[in-house]
């Protein structure tokens, strides 16, 4: 089977899984549905010849599931039952469908699937082994050619984790000036 068929199949699973995750009442079922979506993304990365990404996506999914289940287990989700909310949902759905159809010419203008632009990457695939000595081109890009990007990413990650820890901190910080007196 051509790769497009497999990818359309996995994307169908993703679409169904995400709609189920958004519409189902039970919190645990919604979190498991989002896990299905993430693992389908991981499989799609494998089909797209990106083994590093598949592994990272798999780990991300497991971590995200652990965090979400640990945080939200046993808590009752809010149930949307108001009529006004339903009309809002219909309006938003129609508008988003219109956006999808209006954007179709954009996807036609993009380079077709399977034929990337490959301008910057032509240099990387040719020269990366000689210039960086790495056999894995993805590693050579994130750790050598675009190392500052990675540094910025680590900074953002550090800030996010620091923010999460600060928000979750239970003990109030004692003021040193008052404590000493």
């Amino acid at each position: 089977m051509p790769i497009e068929t497999w990818l359309i199949f996995t994307m169908g699973i993703m679409l169904v899984g995400s709609i189920v995750a958004l519409e189902i009442r039970d919190v645990l079922s919604a979190i498991i549905a989002i896990g299905i979506v993430g693992l389908a993304v991981s499989i799609a990365f494998l089909f797209l010849q990106a083994p590093d990404l598949a592994i990272v996506q798999f780990l991300f999914e497991i971590f995200a599931l652990i965090i979400l289940v640990r945080a939200f287990i046993g808590k009752k989700a809010h149930e949307d039952s108001l009529a006004s909310n339903k009309t809002a949902a219909v309006v938003v759905g129609v508008v988003l469908l219109a956006i999808l159809f209006l954007c179709l010419p954009i996807f036609r203008a993009l380079p077709p699937f399977g034929e990337p632009l490959f301008i910057t990457s032509a240099h990387y695939t040719k020269m990366a082994t000689q210039e960086t000595g790495a056999a894995n081109l993805v590693a050579s890009i994130i750790l050598d050619y675009r190392a500052y990007d990675t540094l910025g990413e680590v900074t953002v990650l550090f800030a996010a984790i620091l923010g999460a820890l600060t928000v979750l901190r239970t003990s109030r910080r004692t003021q040193k000036g008052k404590e000493s007196k």
Binding site: A50, L53, V56, F60, F118, T120, A128, V138, I142
Partner: peptide, 15 residues
């Protein structure tokens, strides 16, 4: 395949 989007998406997943 193009390694550049893969490298950038790798950082994006972690973020």
């Amino acid at each position: 395949v193009d390694p550049l989007p893969q490298a950038l998406v790798l950082t994006s997943i972690v973020i």
